[in-house]
Amino acid sequence: MQKMILGNVEISRVVEFHGAFGATEVLFPSVPGELWHRHESWLAPDFLNAETGEWQSSVQTWVLRSAGRTVLVDTGLGEDKASELGLSDEDGGDFLEHLAAIGVRPDEVDLVINTHLHDDHVGWNTRFVDGEWVPTFPNAQYLISRADFDFWHPANSHAPRFADTGAKFNGSVLPVHQAGQAVLWEGDSYRIDEDLVLELAPGHTPGSAVLRLESGTERALFVGDLIHTPLQIFEPDHDICVSEDPAMAARSRRRVLEQAAATNSLVVPAHLGGAGGAEVTRANGTFSIKRWASLSSS
Rank of each mutant, 00 (worst) to 15 (best):
residue 91 D to Q: 12
residue 92 G to D: 10
residue 93 G to A: 14
residue 93 G to M: 13
residue 94 D to T: 04
residue 95 F to N: 03
residue 97 E to G: 04
residue 100 A to D: 03
residue 100 A to W: 02
residue 101 A to E: 05
residue 102 I to W: 00
residue 102 I to M: 03
residue 105 R to Y: 00
residue 105 R to S: 03
residue 105 R to Q: 13
residue 105 R to D: 04
residue 106 P to S: 04
residue 107 D to R: 11
residue 108 E to A: 12
residue 108 E to G: 03
residue 110 D to E: 10
residue 110 D to A: 10
residue 111 L to G: 00
residue 111 L to H: 02
residue 111 L to M: 07
residue 112 V to T: 04
residue 112 V to M: 04
residue 112 V to D: 03
residue 113 I to V: 15
residue 114 N to S: 12
residue 115 T to H: 03
residue 115 T to P: 02
residue 117 L to Y: 00
residue 117 L to D: 01
residue 117 L to K: 02
residue 118 H to I: 08
residue 119 D to M: 09
residue 120 D to Q: 13
residue 123 G to M: 14
residue 123 G to A: 11
residue 124 W to E: 00
residue 125 N to S: 07
residue 125 N to I: 00
residue 125 N to Q: 06
residue 126 T to E: 08
residue 126 T to V: 14
residue 127 R to A: 06
residue 128 F to Q: 11
residue 129 V to C: 07
residue 130 D to K: 13
residue 131 G to L: 10
residue 131 G to H: 11
residue 131 G to N: 13
residue 132 E to Q: 14
residue 132 E to F: 02
residue 132 E to V: 04
residue 133 W to M: 08
residue 133 W to N: 14
residue 135 P to F: 09
residue 135 P to G: 08
residue 135 P to M: 11
residue 135 P to I: 12
residue 137 F to D: 02
residue 137 F to Y: 15
residue 137 F to C: 03
residue 138 P to C: 08
residue 139 N to W: 01
residue 139 N to L: 05
residue 141 Q to W: 13
residue 142 Y to L: 03
residue 142 Y to W: 05
residue 142 Y to Q: 04
residue 142 Y to C: 01
residue 142 Y to K: 07
residue 143 L to Q: 12
residue 144 I to G: 08
residue 144 I to T: 13
residue 144 I to C: 09
residue 145 S to V: 03
residue 145 S to K: 09
residue 146 R to I: 02
residue 146 R to N: 11
residue 146 R to G: 11
residue 147 A to W: 09
residue 149 F to A: 15
residue 149 F to Y: 14
residue 150 D to Q: 15
residue 153 H to W: 07
residue 153 H to G: 04
residue 154 P to A: 14
residue 155 A to E: 14
residue 156 N to R: 15
residue 156 N to I: 11
residue 157 S to F: 05
residue 157 S to M: 14
residue 158 H to C: 07
residue 159 A to R: 15
residue 161 R to H: 06
residue 161 R to Y: 00
residue 163 A to H: 12
residue 163 A to I: 10
residue 164 D to M: 03
residue 164 D to A: 00
residue 164 D to W: 04
residue 165 T to K: 12
residue 165 T to S: 05
residue 166 G to H: 06
residue 167 A to C: 05
residue 168 K to V: 11
residue 169 F to K: 09
residue 169 F to R: 12
residue 170 N to P: 00
residue 170 N to F: 06
residue 170 N to L: 14
residue 170 N to Y: 09
residue 171 G to Y: 04
residue 171 G to Q: 14
residue 172 S to W: 02
residue 172 S to D: 09
residue 172 S to A: 11
residue 172 S to F: 02
residue 173 V to E: 01
residue 173 V to R: 04
residue 174 L to P: 02
residue 174 L to V: 01
residue 175 P to K: 07
residue 175 P to V: 03
residue 176 V to E: 01
residue 178 Q to A: 04
residue 179 A to H: 05
residue 180 G to T: 11
residue 180 G to C: 09
residue 180 G to H: 06
residue 180 G to I: 07
